[in-house]
Design a protein around this nucleic acid. Structure first.
Lengths: 171, 171
DNA sequence: CAAAATCCATTTGTATACGAATGAATTTCA
DNA sequence: TGAAATTCATTCGTATACAAATGGATTTTG
């Protein structure tokens, strides 16, 4: 095992040490206000996730106008995994059945994907990329990488890695 | 300055050291595949933010059925900041004008908020909590804290603090 | 095997989201 | 001051989201 990364991580640790509010800073013995902590919206994970997502989607929107974020995700997943049943595609892009249907319908209207019946399982609809869909995704992928980079720009490289790691644990 | 927190942070650093993919692990000299990194949806911040948000909203939904997340956020912000113009309320809850209008309309229908004209600025509509709205929020706040706790449960205390810190930087 | 449980795609209904346009009111600034 | 810029609330249109219900197909199991 190679320890070349340690100093980088120490850097961020030290930075965080000053920035992060101290855990248990209120002493364990009950003060005059046991319920002193107000409920502040700006401190809630949900709100912070929401705001971070909004900023990301705004960056995406300025960079990519041809496809909505979920349409892009759908084409990206099809590129990655090949043809998939509509429901499987929804699972892999984290959309429920009702939602992925609308996205696929709109992509079909633009002739970026096509559907066919599954021979083996007559419940399934197989969704696949059209040549146009493949081409469009090829053109947009490098821009999409820039969108990710721009989204993470406020963080150092190690902070970025840690954020992704922590978000993954929240899945 | 007190350094009592350092060992905690070192713990997570060491854990991350093994879990986080190495930065620049591909050598700087061009290999046979300069574009070797595939675009994997599951590695994109946007997708991870989305999944973390989905899990959070699912936890919220199981815990709180009386109000949607945005309705709760709206009441919480009104409790925190007092009566606000509709647009100001939208800004503080991170909803645009069109969105906050729908939320306020639905809260009004349930008589949890009320609106009045601003005497000073005739463009503005002032939104305030009704007694029922205040009561309902009082009842739900401790559950909302549990929702936040449950959302962050997969992380240690220091990881939680770091995540919130990093998300704040992405705003 | 056949009933029960699942899975698949679809539809319906409600609730965000947000760009863009609009008209009224207020503020800015030349 | 008065025109230009901004702000506010509203509306319209499109695109997610997701719970719940439905009907058809497949899998699981007793």
């Amino acid at each position: 095992m190679d320890f070349a990364g340690i100093s980088l991580y120490c850097q961020i640790i030290l930075r965080h040490f000053q920035a992060v509010p101290k855990l248990n800073s209120s002493s364990p013995k009950a003060g005059p206000k046991p319920d002193a902590a107000p409920y502040r919206l700006d401190d809630q994970v949900g709100h912070l996730l929401r705001r971070a997502t909004q900023r990301h989607l705004s960056i995406y929107g300025q960079a990519i106008g041809a496809l909505t974020p979920m349409q892009f995700a759908t084409l990206a997943k099809l590129t990655e995994a090949g043809a998939l049943s509509q429901n499987a595609l929804g699972r892999l892009t984290a959309m429920d059945g009702a939602t992925i249907k609308g996205v696929v319908d709109r992509l079909k209207k633009h002739e970026l994907v096509q559907t066919e019946n599954d021979k083996t399982d007559r419940r399934r609809t197989i969704v696949s990329l059209t040549p146009q869909g493949r081409n469009l995704l090829d053109e947009l992928t490098s821009t999409a990488r820039q969108v990710t980079d721009e989204t993470l720009k406020p963080l150092t490289d190690s902070e970025q890695a840690i954020l992704l790691h922590l978000l993954r644990k929240l899945t």
